[in-house]
Design a protein around this nucleic acid. Structure first.
Lengths: 178, 178
DNA sequence: GGATACATGTAATGAGTTACATGATTCC
DNA sequence: GGAATCATGTAACTCATTACATGTATCC
């Protein structure tokens, strides 16, 4: 369902677009929000067209198909956003690794946490840069809300990793655990 | 892979445990980290046993089977945590809804964001309570690291929702967008 | 004796990944 | 003319959800 809605939303915001470009968007600007491979995008677009939520507006060179969202598609998107209870299922590999941290000895745990801290610091910088290009309060630009959320989550994880590093060090100093 | 590792990790930390109890753990204490239904847990345990990463230690009343992790299982877990590059794929329904927020009119968007703020405030309180029961610096307790991460992420989302609410209100005041 | 919780499984379906397969246009 | 990029698809497999199916122990 989420992929379906992501595609409808992208078509609403970008206007007529082909599957290739939509796939690129998942890999580029949407990568910290939702991801999908072309092998998932093309069949999904076909299904959306079958259901009448999108239509093939025109076909271009190299077999290109540009899709547009229909009124039914807009309705479906709005309905999903406003009426359907969000799926709160959490499946966070990062958090899982955090949970399993205490199964490692101190050196391994410290190394892992350091790597995470570095990764999320870099990532926070990257998303922050993206957000700052959209941040202008005049902009009703798409992606501002998502970018802001991305920055906040990413920097929260980076901070956690710093905290965990310090805590592991404190444990070491006390000669605890292992 | 992650479910596999979650099960190995739980068996390492809890000692011999049956599938029913492991499933309960996913629903209770692990729910903000990783989730899995019993229909996924039982076959996965069977596969782990086939591969020799766990063994059935004993069988109890009501057909109960208690699994223990083997040395090979411990090695596999450690290898995954220290050598395997984490899967950074993001598929965050929340962030997706955030991204799609500007496709809604102001009232709908504000209502959505308000609901999210409330949900994540409640959730933050709940995880905070869990964390505080583990927080004692003497504790090498399992779950401290994951609980701390959960609190930080959850409160980051709650803060974001407050920010988004204010930003939508500012847009309204300026008579912007729709 | 009846409700509830414990306990384990399978089947059908949907979602997502990796690999296979093909061809057209553009850039150099 | 060759490489890179644009462009679309399918197949096999893994992962996850929902529903179906069954039986046992305990609590009251």
């Amino acid at each position: 369902m989420s992929l379906r809605m992501a595609l409808l939303g992208l078509l609403v915001t970008k206007g007529p677009t082909n599957g290739y470009a939509l796939t690129r968007t998942f890999a580029d600007s949407l990568s910290h929000v939702w991801s999908a491979q072309h092998s998932q995008v093309y069949p999904e677009l076909a299904r959306l067209a079958e259901t009448g939520l999108v239509t093939v507006q025109d076909e271009g060179p190299r077999g290109q198909k540009r899709y547009t969202v229909t009124d039914a598609g807009r309705d479906a998107l709005r309905h999903w956003l406003t009426e359907v209870e969000p799926n709160r299922t959490v499946r966070n590999e990062n958090a899982l690794r955090a949970f399993l941290l205490p199964t490692l000895d101190r050196e391994d745990a410290a190394r892992l946490v350091r790597k995470e801290a570095e990764y999320y610091q870099r990532r926070t910088e990257e998303i922050t840069r993206q957000r700052d290009m959209l941040r202008d309060p005049q902009s009703t630009g798409f992606g501002v809300y998502a970018a802001e959320l991305g920055v906040r989550i990413s920097s929260a994880i980076a901070d956690w990793a710093e905290w965990a590093e310090a805590r592991l060090e404190a444990e070491r100093a006390r000669g605890n655990g292992g």
